[in-house]
Amino acid sequence: MALKVLVVDDSGFFRRRVTDIINADPRLEVIGVAENGLQAIELNDKLKPDVITMDYEMPVMDGITAVRKIMASTPVPVLMFSSLTFEGARVTLDALDAGAVDFLPKNFDAIARNAASIRKLLAEKIIGVARGQLKGTAQVSTSPSQPSQKKTPTAAGANEPVPRHLELVVIGTSTGGPAALQNIFKSLPAGFNKPIIIVQHMPASFTAAFAERLNNLSALSVKEAEEGDVLKPGHVYVAPGGKQLIVDKRHGGSIHILESDERVSYRPSVDVALASAAKHYGSKALGIVLTGMGADGREGARLLKQSGGHLWAQDEQSCVIYGMPMAVINAGLADRVLPLNDVSKFMSQL
């Protein structure tokens, strides 16, 4: 049975375009369209869609308000559409805080090479969001919490003591990552003394806004990474969207930002960052793979483990999308499998 989709946008042209793209995939079916957030709430109650695609700037009721009301009454996975601007990034991050599962830039042509890739990208996003089934929405809090007392499944050999003498932490994530990272960085103490790299799948215009948001809520110093940044204890560097970040231990430890090879699907890529950490830091590096669609991070984790490094993965129950951690765990690469609310606790013990 096809997944039922409700399309919400005040632009008649965009509603038609999205509807045509979705209905071209036999796995998906548009069952209704709405011109504003108020109509979206009404049609959600009436039609019971599996997924809603939502614009954020609309008359009568904006998308963020609509998402909040939907999550409070009849929760449904929401895929937000956003503009590729700094302000659009801020609004999209607000929508993710409100409960949206994922986002997609509204300018399809800027992120996809042709009509076929646009259809594939949108369909994969909708199907991925639907499979998430809001698993993380009720459980992932962005405020500090007590460590979970529940036992979590572990990978083979996933009982390694918390590693000591680390010099670098690399965190990789995708769908569900912004909320997960806010959960972690609200809880990390000001005395945390390791440099941290964050690789979050985001467009180029989004990562600066996301770094700003993390910096405002964290006791640590957070910035978008730049070429030549020196890795400092207690500082956090967000990989810029559209490029690749690698680390180099020579000359005290630094960051290099590279143009991305088109053969690499993700920009930034968790695999690329972990591979550089494996090469330069080896046993003194820790990789943490959080919620996300796909398998980015698995091959980088393999290289990290081969070099003596350490790898943690988020558990299935606390993930919005279990793809990336599952790929690492199923490959037998995770030293520790953690609920999201325990990640900052164990990081604090490093």
Rank of each mutant, 00 (worst) to 15 (best):
L220P: 11
V236L: 10
P203N: 05
P195M: 10
G172T: 04
K186P: 00
K232M: 13
I198S: 03
A155P: 11
I196R: 03
P233M: 04
M202V: 08
K151M: 12
H235D: 05
K186D: 01
L220N: 04
P178K: 07
H235A: 11
G234N: 04
V199N: 11
E160I: 08
A209K: 03
R213L: 07
S205C: 09
A158D: 06
S187I: 03
A204L: 05
G176T: 11
N159T: 13
A155N: 12
Q182R: 14
F210G: 12
G157N: 06
E167S: 15
L231P: 01
A158V: 01
E227V: 06
L181G: 07
I198M: 05
R213I: 08
G241M: 09
S218A: 14
D229F: 04
K150I: 13
T207I: 02
K151R: 15
P233H: 07
S174C: 11
A209R: 04
G241L: 10
K243S: 13
L166N: 00
T207D: 07
F206A: 08
S205P: 02
V199P: 11
E226Q: 15
K243T: 14
K151W: 04
Q182Y: 01
S205G: 00
V238E: 06
H235Y: 12
D229M: 02
P240Y: 03
T173F: 09
A179Y: 03
V222G: 03
P161F: 03
S218I: 10
T207N: 04
L181Y: 08
I196C: 05
H165K: 15
H235K: 12
V230L: 13
G176H: 12
P203L: 08
G157P: 03
G191M: 02
H165Y: 09
V230I: 14
A179G: 11
G242W: 06
E167A: 14
V199S: 09
H201Y: 13
G191T: 12
L166D: 00
V222P: 05
I198Y: 02
V169M: 07
I246E: 11
V199C: 08
V170A: 12
S205T: 15
A239H: 02
